[in-house]
Structure formats: structure tokens, C-alpha cells
Amino acid sequence: MDGGSGIMLSELRTMWEVLKHTFTKAETVQYPEEMPYLSPRYRGRIVLTRDPDGEERCVACNLCAAVCPVDCIALQKETRADGTWYPEFFRINFSRCIMCGMCEEACPTYAIQLTPDFEMCEYDRQNMVYEKENLLINGVGKYPDYNFYRVSGMQTATKDKGEAKNEAAPIDPKSLLP
């Protein structure tokens, strides 16, 4: 078409291709009468999961917040008596969230996960701001066996130094043995 050099064959072909769709079935699903299938890895409402022992998985490392392209995650780290980390507050502003799932990819503890639930409309925008109590679920989500503190070198109430996965017993620096 540019400069009149073409003879619009491409346009005619496009029209023909579109016309053929007169005889194809509509892809649209008649929601809400008919619920579409959403795969487990669908990126919908964000939840915080718990580890197999029922503790919060989130260690407040802030990576989800850092990677969030719309900066809609804010949290503050707090420490338990045994030195483990957890979020004092964890807030997602869903009125900003674009469900890109990068927080889930960034999460080193599988705490933050996206679920196949997208029905979260609200009449009041303020209700789109989810705090930790709204996000935390009583379940392990997609990675049922993972517990970060069993892998991490950090000592916790239930795990001494050297008891984590693939760790040797603590070294006694005062020992003269090789």
C-alpha cells in the first residue's frame, strides 16, 4: 500500500481469511454460566502459603517487593525469638497489581504464590488492599514439601546448627584435630 506499489493482494487475502471465520465456533466462554478451566499455574489472586509444619513461609526477604514492576507490595521484616524472620506486615495493593507473577518467580521460599482465582472485584477500592491476614492461607500451595529453614544455614528453634539439609555438624574451633 505504501506509495501505491502494492496491489492490495495482502488486504484481499486478509479479508478472505477473516471471512472464513464466519463458519468457526466462538472461543468465548459464557462466564459466569459456564466457568472456564484455569490451570493450577494460572496467575490470579496472590496468597501467602505456609510450610508443611504450618508456619508462615515468608521470611520477609523483600525480593517480591523489589521485583514488582508496579511496586504494589510493601512489607516490613520482623524477627521471632529464635532469630527467624517473618513479615510484621505484608501488604499487596491489588488495585495496582497486574498479576504478572514475577513475585512468585522471585520468592526464594515458595511463600508467595498466584492462584487460579480472579474473581476479586470490589465496589470500594480500599478493599483491594490486602493485608497479611487476607493473604495468608492455611496450606502449602504448589510446593507441598518445601520448608526454607530446613535448607537454610540459619539456626532456628527446631533446628540446631548443622542440622539443615546437607550440613555437617558445627566445627569446634578449639579442637586441635584436623
Binding site: 477473516v18 471471512l19 471465520h21 464466519t22 468457526t24 465456533k25 466462538a26
Partner: peptide, 8 residues
């Protein structure tokens, strides 16, 4: 347009 774009 719906017909040609496979929707309703």
C-alpha cells in the same frame, strides 16, 4: 464483528 473474530 463477533462472528468474524470468533466471539459473541
Amino acid at each position: 464483528l463477533g462472528v468474524w473474530q470468533d466471539r459473541y
